[in-house]
C-alpha cells in the first residue's frame, strides 16, 4: 500500500533555502506559464504572418511560408528542441551564437525552449490562418479591392477580422497543445512543471503525490486557457453570423 503523505508539500525542501516542496511546484508552474506565454506570442505573430503569406499572390512569399510549414511540421518536436539548444548556437550567424552562449545557463534553456515551441506551434497556426482566410468567400476579397483598398488593407480590414474569428476554436486547442508540449523542455533541463515533478519524486520519494499535483496543475492551467478563449470567442461574436444571436 502507498503511504499517502500530502503534508510533504509543506515540508522544507532539501537545500536549506527555506523553500517548501510546494514552492518547488509553484516555481515549475510559473516557468511553464512563462515559457508557454512567450512561445504563444511568437507562434501567433509569426504564424499569422506566414498564414497570410500562404494565401498571398506572390510566388516568393508562398514558397517561403510553405517551406517553413513543411519543415517545422515534419520534424519531431523533441528533435527540434535539441536542434535549437545544441546545434543552433553553433551555426547561428551574426554573432547570435556567441550572444546566446554568454547568457546565464537558465536563460539559455528558456530562450531555446521558447523559440522551439514558438516556431513549432507557429507552423500549425500558419495552416489555421490560411484555412481561415480560404474559408471566406472569394467575393470578400474582391469587394475589399473594389472599394479601393490596397491588398494589405483588404487583409487588414476585410479578410483577417473574419478569418481570426472563425479560427478561434482551433486556436484554443493549439494554445492548450502548446502548454502540454512545453513539458519536452524538461529534457534539456528547463525547470518547468514536469521537470519539478520529477525533482520532487527524487527528493521526497512520494511519486503519487508529486505527479498528481503536477497533473492537476496542467489540467487547471489548460482549463483556464479554454475558459479565457471561450470568453474571447463570445466577445468577438458577430451578430447574425454563425450562431451570433438573432435578428
Amino acid at each position: 500500500m502507498h503511504n499517502w503523505r500530502w503534508e510533504v508539500f509543506l515540508e522544507p525542501a532539501q537545500g536549506g533555502s527555506g523553500a517548501t516542496y510546494l514552492d518547488w511546484v509553484l516555481v515549475g508552474l510559473r516557468m511553464t506559464a512563462a515559457v508557454s506565454l512567450c512561445s504563444w506570442v511568437i507562434a501567433l505573430l509569426w504564424g499569422s504572418l506566414m498564414g497570410i503569406f500562404r494565401t498571398y499572390p506572390s510566388k516568393l512569399l508562398y514558397g517561403l511560408s510553405t517551406a517553413y510549414v513543411e519543415v517545422f511540421r515534419n520534424i519531431p518536436l523533441l528533435v527540434q528542441l535539441f536542434l535549437w539548444y545544441f546545434v543552433a548556437p553553433e551555426v547561428a550567424p551574426l554573432g547570435l551564437g556567441a550572444w546566446f552562449k554568454q547568457l546565464h545557463p537558465n536563460l539559455q534553456l528558456f530562450v531555446a525552449s521558447m523559440l522551439c515551441l514558438g516556431f513549432f506551434t507557429g507552423a500549425r497556426i500558419t495552416e489555421q490562418v490560411r484555412a481561415g482566410i480560404e474559408s471566406l468567400s472569394r467575393g470578400q476579397k474582391a469587394a475589399g479591392l473594389a472599394m479601393g483598398f490596397t491588398l494589405p488593407q483588404t487583409y487588414r480590414h476585410v479578410l483577417l477580422p473574419m478569418a481570426f474569428r472563425i479560427i478561434i476554436p482551433p486556436l484554443s486547442s493549439e494554445c492548450v497543445n502548446l502548454v502540454k508540449n512545453s513539458a519536452v523542455a524538461s529534457t534539456i533541463g528547463l525547470m518547468e512543471l514536469a521537470y519539478q515533478g520529477r525533482q520532487l519524486v527524487d527528493y521526497t520519494a512520494q511519486s503519487y503525490e508529486s505527479f498528481i499535483a503536477v497533473t492537476a496543475l496542467y489540467v487547471a492551467l489548460n482549463l483556464l486557457i479554454l475558459l479565457f478563449m471561450r470568453w474571447v470567442e463570445k466577445k468577438a461574436r458577430v451578430p447574425g453570423f454563425m450562431g451570433g444571436g438573432g435578428r
Binding site: A142, H157, M162
Partner: peptide, 9 residues
C-alpha cells in the same frame, strides 16, 4: 456584387 459581399463583422 451578386452575393452582396458586405463585410459581416
Amino acid at each position: 456584387f451578386q452575393h452582396f459581399e458586405l463585410f459581416p463583422h
